[in-house]
């Protein structure tokens, strides 16, 4: 179990060694968060017979102590612990849990491991807004961007980063397509209305269509503060659907608009 893990991060003791402030009042120094104090895994020294005694051997049954040379306060410099999490000179037994002072992740994280992390769904819009003309391109835009989630994997706080990679469109008329771009408005593209775009679609018949986009994201993860690691494959966000009324010029421009505005021109 332990061998299958590799040490990704951090020996708190190391931080202590490089992070000790003014030596004037740092006779006994050890990084401690309130949570570590609560758990009793914090090494608080006491003065006995004129010598500093470091209590780093508490074990709360799994939390483990801090592994790192930084717990040495004998005047020498700590060695920062061993990067593989093993015991060594200056180290304190972690109980081989890879926690308490070190962050360990398995060396092979798969998409299955990250199943609890799901990229955010995009928002889907179209122009014209909610209707289209048969025979002319309607333009669809999936609004999404790279985003991050924080959570816990194998007891380790991690960050997962999703980057949109491809957009799978189901046009509702039996056809599908895949694009590498999310789409943009005609105005943003500098095109006149009803121009073809990478994410436009032409519908041949009148009716109401449900257009669905599913965005596939590439996935990276890291133990907090460490380098990003990528994972093979992609994760898809929940599909998003938009309904569009397809008509000819008369049914759409006159009939539909007359429903909205009975006093409009041509009604």
């Amino acid at each position: 179990m332990v061998k299958s893990r590799f040490l990704l991060a951090v020996l708190v003791g190391f931080l202590v060694v490089i992070g000790v402030g003014s030596p004037a009042y740092a006779a006994v120094a050890n990084a401690c968060t309130p949570i570590e104090v609560k758990l009793g895994t914090c090494s608080v020294g006491s003065i006995e017979n004129g010598e500093a005694v470091i209590r780093g051997d508490q074990n709360n049954g799994g939390g483990g102590g801090n592994n790192g040379g930084g717990n040495n306060n004998d005047g020498g410099s700590g060695d920062g612990g061993n990067s593989d999490g093993s015991d060594g000179p200056g180290g304190i037994d972690t109980g081989m849990m890879c926690t308490g002072g070190a962050i360990c992740l398995p060396d092979l994280v798969t998409l299955n491991d990250l199943a609890r992390f799901r990229p955010n769904a995009p928002s889907l819009s179209m122009e014209p807004d909610g209707w289209l003309l048969i025979g002319l391109p309607a333009n669809f835009i999936a609004d999404t961007s790279r985003h991050m989630q924080t959570g816990i994997l194998f007891d380790v706080p991690i960050e997962v980063r999703f980057t949109p990679a491809s957009y799978n469109w189901s046009w509702g008329d039996g056809t599908t397509s895949r694009t590498s771009v999310p789409g943009a408005t005609w105005a943003e593209l500098g095109l006149p209305e009803f121009s073809p775009t990478p994410t436009s679609h032409v519908f041949a018949e009148t009716g109401v269509y449900s257009v669905t986009v599913t965005v596939a994201f590439t996935v990276e993860y890291r133990a907090v503060g460490r380098a990003w690691m990528s994972i093979d494959g992609t994760l898809s966000a929940p599909a998003v659907t938009i309904a569009a009324l397809a008509g000819d010029a008369k049914t759409v421009l006159v009939d539909k608009e007359c429903n909205r505005n009975p006093n409009g021109p041509g009604c």
Partner: peptide
């Protein structure tokens, strides 16, 4: 902080 939280979650 994350290390301390890891200890809590792990236990």
């Amino acid at each position: 902080e994350a290390a301390g939280i890891g200890g809590l979650v792990s236990a």
